[in-house]
């Protein structure tokens, strides 16, 4: 027994890991028209969110207000 929507907020049977594998194979052999495909950066961000998202948001929920200084530094670095 499994759920349609798993505890990583991914969809059972079409998980992101499977999509990453298909995207890699799709770089080697033609698999059809995916209209640009998923994009590497999108896959990385989504993989982080699906697989590591909970601990990160747990820390942010509890200590996020103390991390404002880090955010300000990040904003400055982006500039």
């Amino acid at each position: 027994m499994s759920t349609v929507h798993n505890n990583r907020y991914d969809l059972a049977g079409i998980e992101l890991s499977r999509l990453i594998k298909t995207a890699i194979v799709g770089k080697i052999i033609p698999m059809g028209n995916f209209r640009g495909g998923p994009g590497g950066r999108c896959l990385v961000v989504l993989a982080l969110l699906h697989y590591l998202g909970y601990p990160v948001y747990r820390i942010l929920a509890q200590y996020g207000h103390r991390l404002q200084i880090l955010r300000r530094i990040a904003v400055k670095l982006r500039r």
């Binding site: 989504l46 699906h50 998202g53 909970y54 948001y57 942010l60 929920a61």
Partner: peptide, 10 residues
């Protein structure tokens, strides 16, 4: 709920 934050962020 960090789970909700994660879900919405996804």
């Amino acid at each position: 709920d960090p789970g909700e934050d994660q879900r919405k962020s996804i």
